[in-house]
Design a binder for these strands. Structure first.
Lengths: 159, 159
DNA sequence: TATTGACCTAAAGTTAAGTTTATGGGTTAT
DNA sequence: ATAACCCATAAACTTAACTTTAGGTCAATA
């Protein structure tokens, strides 16, 4: 099965110009062309594009993705490099997830903070302060696993 | 307690030029200055910078972060907007984490793939194919929670 | 006193990852 | 057969988030 650039664009939700850009940058080694110079993408190309999306999601820059594909083309001599690449990317991704989870806790605290502020109509009344403190203490007692606050954030009204 | 720009830079691991850039872009409402026009950061400024880092981590562009701080300055009339902002950011962050976890599975599969390739010295022998299949089936049987493969990825040797 | 080091501004430069524009070829529907 | 599409390239443009550069102040130190 082969696909035109427009079909691939719809299939993978990547713009046509981005696909051409990736091809030009050498991220898609050897995309076939018709006699009329029109690209025909095959299943391997689709696989490559899926892998590009995967690596891009985890924050790998296109130039590094390109190097990976070059290693693939070279063959078995580059197995070690490719192993190290994925091992490093695994670590980076795990770290990224942890960072996001830490940030999410702060954000969840803010959602709670502003939910109470909405109820009270202000962020600067004793009533608000108390409701916030109540909510915060209550959660501590009940050992809720989600929506934990970051104590540092609760020190300041400023943000 | 107040801090010079250099101290803040060391404290939060943000470059001096980035701090000046944030200030210029209006992300740090009202940083105090000495008579000699030197910035003195206080604890509220540090709090703001921590919040900037948090929001930046979750992918919020600086212009949106700026809007948030402007809302903070306006006061209680913007509580609803701020609530919605954090609610939206909570959702985006949860989605981002899921995306990363999906990508991580693919990457974990590749780590396994290349670990076996290293052992066998190739990615294209029947021996390698078999070892990979063994490993994959074995994991299915034992219900391992980590390092699951994405079946799509196992279809192609290409990448 | 001269120089070093930390700070300041404004403006230009950089990088990544595309997107847009200008120009043109080939096929299909009215 | 002419308009409407889909495809092609090259080159210029865009955006975000910084970073670098050039030029200047000021305080402490050798």
């Amino acid at each position: 099965m082969t696909y035109s650039i427009g079909e691939v664009s719809n299939l993978l939700d990547i713009s046509i110009s981005t696909l051409r850009y990736y091809d030009k940058e050498g991220l898609l080694p050897l995309v076939n062309r018709t006699e009329g110079n029109i690209r025909r993408f095959n299943d391997t190309d689709i696989e490559c594009l899926n892998m590009i999306e995967c690596l891009k999601t985890t924050g790998m820059p296109l130039k590094d993705i390109k190097v990976f594909f070059e290693w693939c083309e070279i063959g078995d001599d580059t197995i070690d490099q490719r192993y190290e690449l994925f091992l490093a990317q695994k670590q980076k991704t795990e770290e990224k997830i942890k960072e996001l989870e830490t940030a999410l806790k702060r954000i969840n605290y803010k959602v709670e903070y502003y939910r109470i502020a909405k109820e009270k109509g202000t962020t600067s009344s004793p009533d608000f302060e108390e409701a916030l403190a109540m909510r915060y203490l209550q959660k501590k007692d009940t050992q809720s696993t989600e929506d934990q606050t970051t104590p540092a954030a609760s020190k300041s009204q400023a943000v």
